[in-house]
Design a protein around this nucleic acid. Structure first.
Lengths: 240, 240
DNA sequence: AGTTCACATTGGCATAGACCAATTATGTTG
DNA sequence: CAACATAATTGGTCTATGCCAATGTGAACT
């Protein structure tokens, strides 16, 4: 009797492969059969069909809308993130970036923010919360904390659009060095609301600490990118 | 009647919060109640309990072993990734890296590999497949393609351990520039087998193209890191 | 023609239960 | 006491089913 056989592949995974075959070559937006239809065709339960489709949605290969149907998703957006800003990065790729201001306040730094920005807890920081869009589609939820108060910040930002441009041109703050931390997370209710994604969808959460030429913190940001639509690129050259 | 009420939070998400409360402050490795016990305690079905726990596992907060139980997971490992190799990166943080050779062959370049390395399809490339471990724990599955044949490569690699060290010291290939692409993916059967993770677990998939000082490709690598145990850091300074 | 409203369709959430697979505990046997 | 067979425990997969929520359709009514 065989003892070292590979563990049986789950049925939902086989079904996943089937569906991948179904959608190969189809145009983004094309509707695929309904869950109930697939369950019938492949002689399985809707639960199993949903598990297969849920993973394909998480991988960015399918999308779905309640009451409407499940469809082939558009390809991922690649995003270069170096010393530049979101808007500059996007424009460099010929994409139309946009930004929706959610809130802008001066608040007291909490523990985590104070540590990153080298402040005492409670000192004033500017908190900027935005939704980032590419080609009109919400792609990331971003909260940035900047040390101190920035006079007339809101109007400057509205005019320039790019945070880094405003910091450099208006306030003389130039980013010379950044440290990005990338990890995975799963979408909770707030992410669902702000980004229009599914509960439990995978996110790429990026924390960025930007410093000026003297090493002084300029910006501490948490960005939650849709993992199904986004790809992060970083280029590094050796000093020379 | 209210029309703009927030959509009801799913029960499994509430349960997730409950379980997070349960494990707050517990030591890694501590067993939590069984799925059947939780279903009873919170008056819900095992299906719902499993959905909640599955997300906590995906987030790296819990782990589970069939036949044993579900337990509090150890914290994520932060991994700095610069121009250096996996082993150097890890050692710089005081972590004990290790590497398990899966296979090493000279093969004909397929389409994707040929494009990245600037070769014709079918030209010989060295294919190196390894499992990367930190503190004895499998953390990543890595496949590297290097242009051409590398004489006595296997023994050199076994001696030095670090790929980049061998390339530099033995073959005079020095990496001067890398481009990393990071995206999310879900674990399939092979990832499950090689990394000992769950089906559908989130992965951080990194593609790296490394070039020498002349811009010639030196290495094309696909690495699949466990998203539940791993955090990726990249530092960038402006050319000074 | 335009509006409204009921209904069908489709995905979202949850239940209850069954069986399998891996592990651990238990008890029996040599 | 050790080794082995057996049973109980626990997570892994799957089925069948019900109801809810969002969307789309079409008939009925102005």
């Amino acid at each position: 009797m065989p003892t070292d056989v590979a563990p049986a592949t789950p049925k939902y995974y086989l079904l996943k492969t089937e569906v991948l075959g179904l959608i190969a070559g189809l145009q983004p937006g094309t509707l695929i059969p309904t869950e109930r239809a697939l369950a019938g065709r492949y002689a399985t339960s809707r639960t199993t069909v949903r598990q297969a489709i849920s993973e394909l949605v998480a991988e960015g290969k399918l999308g779905r809308i309640q009451g409407h149907g499940t469809f082939v998703a558009p390809p991922k957006v690649t995003h270069v993130r170096q010393l530049t800003s979101f808007s500059d990065d996007a424009r460099n790729q010929g994409l139309r970036p946009d930004s929706r201001l959610v809130s802008l306040d001066v608040v007291g730094a909490d523990d985590g923010v104070a540590v990153r920005l080298g402040l005492e807890q409670g000192q004033p920081v500017t908190r900027l919360e935005r939704i980032r869009l590419i080609e009109g589609e919400p792609l990331a939820h971003e909260v940035a904390w900047l040390p101190g108060r920035l006079p007339r910040f809101k109007s400057h930002l509205a005019k320039a659009g790019s945070l880094y441009a405003v910091l450099a041109d208006v306030y003389g703050l130039r980013v010379a060095e950044v440290e990005d931390t990338v990890e995975t997370a799963l979408a909770g209710p707030e992410d669902v609301r702000l980004l229009g994604i599914e509960m439990g969808a995978p996110l790429l959460v990026v924390h960025r600490l930007a410093r000026d030429a003297n090493g002084a913190p300029v910006e501490w940001t948490r960005s939650a990118f849709r993992g199904d639509r986004f790809r992060f690129v970083s280029r590094v050259k050796s000093g020379g």
